[in-house]
Amino acid sequence: MGELVQHLLNATILGGTYALLGIGLTLIFGIMRVVNFTHGELYAFGAYCMYALAMLLGVNFFVALVLAMILGAALGAVLEIVLLSRLRGADIDTTMLVMIGAWIVMQNTEQLVWSGVALSIANPFPADPLVMGPLSVSWNRVFVFAAALLLIAGTYHLVNRTRLGKAMRATFQDRDTAALMGIRIDRIHTATFALGSSLAAAAGALLGPVFVVAPTMGDLAASKAFAIVILGGLGSVTGATLGGFILAFVEEIGAGYISSGYRDAMGFLLIILILLVRPTGLFAQKERIG
């Protein structure tokens, strides 16, 4: 019993993390239809920013978090303007190839700058975990969970309740009409990419202190993010959040009671299963087919 409850607690905490990874990608991949291979590198960028700021420059942990998000947004904006703005309206595979190129360049730049040796970031939370009967969870993870929920809520509000969010949705639903309505298409593209990048960097900055920081850390994060986004449905913040929690539960229970070797396969197996049973996906949207 205690074991099951601990599994469920772990899954909830992990789910918050996964949701955070997913929402950044769902904006760029789901709304912009750019297969964003730099998502994992922006995540790593956030973690390295955190390391540089908090560990090398001695900036306050929480200030460093905010700065990492801002730097992530800035890098995202630069990537969008330099790499993607010339490819508006190009095929999905053309933009993808550019993003693959950027992914390779970014990951190896990280290794060149920081070497392959893993780094760790100290956190200001108590070292002893929060203990509740047979259960325990680290304070740092509780903080990450809370911060993730806050960022998710903020993003949801931004996309669904603000003028900017409305403009984003309009732009990617129907460019021409949106342009006619006076929306500045280029700015919306850049803003969306910057927002998604900022969320990826936030995830990296939050999780860097939980895990370790290494140049290849982004690859795993990206593969999880892709699974989460398809589970939840493209372009929906709610979907990505749910997708994150579903993936975490499936992985945790799968590893706990089936086989830990298949832990990382669970999400992908689930996707294929869903496709077999319900090709329209868990959270059906009509754009999904055709």
Binding site: F29, R33, I92, L275, P279
Partner: peptide
């Protein structure tokens, strides 16, 4: 091929 586009990519 029940799905297309970006979904097909992830599948």
């Amino acid at each position: 091929f029940r799905v297309r586009g970006a979904y097909f990519v992830i599948v």
